[in-house]
Amino acid sequence: MAKVLIVYAHQSSGSFNAAAKDLAVEVLTAQGCSVEVSDLYAMDFKAAATVDDIKGEIQDPDHFSYKRETKLAFEEGRLSEDITKEHAKIIEADLIIFQVYSIKWMYLSCKPFRSTLFLFQFPMYWFGLPAIMKGWIDRVLTNGFAFSTEQLYSQGVFKDKKTMLSFTTGSLESMFSPTGINGDMNVTLWPIQNGILNYCGFQVLAPQIFWAPALAAAEDCKSMLEGWRTRLQGLLEEKPLSFIPLDSFDQKTFQLKPDVHEQHASKEFGLTVGIHLNKPLPPHSQMKAGC
Rank of each mutant, 00 (worst) to 15 (best):
Y153K: 05
R114S: 11
D39V: 06
Q31F: 01
A30T: 03
K239G: 05
L241C: 06
L277K: 05
M164F: 09
K21L: 11
L256D: 12
A42K: 15
T253P: 10
Q11N: 10
Q286F: 03
P191Y: 09
S15H: 06
D138Q: 06
Y8R: 10
E75K: 15
W126H: 10
L281E: 07
L197A: 14
T116I: 06
L72F: 05
S248K: 13
L108V: 14
F167V: 10
S285A: 12
I54M: 07
E76L: 12
I244T: 15
F118C: 12
G144E: 07
F16D: 03
T142S: 06
T142A: 00
E226D: 14
T50M: 02
S115Q: 11
I244Q: 01
E26V: 00
V157G: 01
F64M: 02
C200L: 04
A47T: 09
A206P: 15
Q99E: 13
H10E: 05
C110A: 13
P130A: 09
G274M: 09
L165E: 02
K239N: 12
Y41M: 04
Q193W: 00
P191M: 06
I96L: 15
Q286V: 02
F145D: 08
S177C: 08
D53I: 03
A24C: 08
L232N: 07
K239H: 09
D22A: 14
G270S: 09
G227W: 02
C200M: 13
W126F: 11
I97N: 05
A9Q: 05
Q11P: 14
A9Y: 01
D44H: 13
S242Y: 02
N17L: 05
Q99H: 11
I244G: 03
P112W: 02
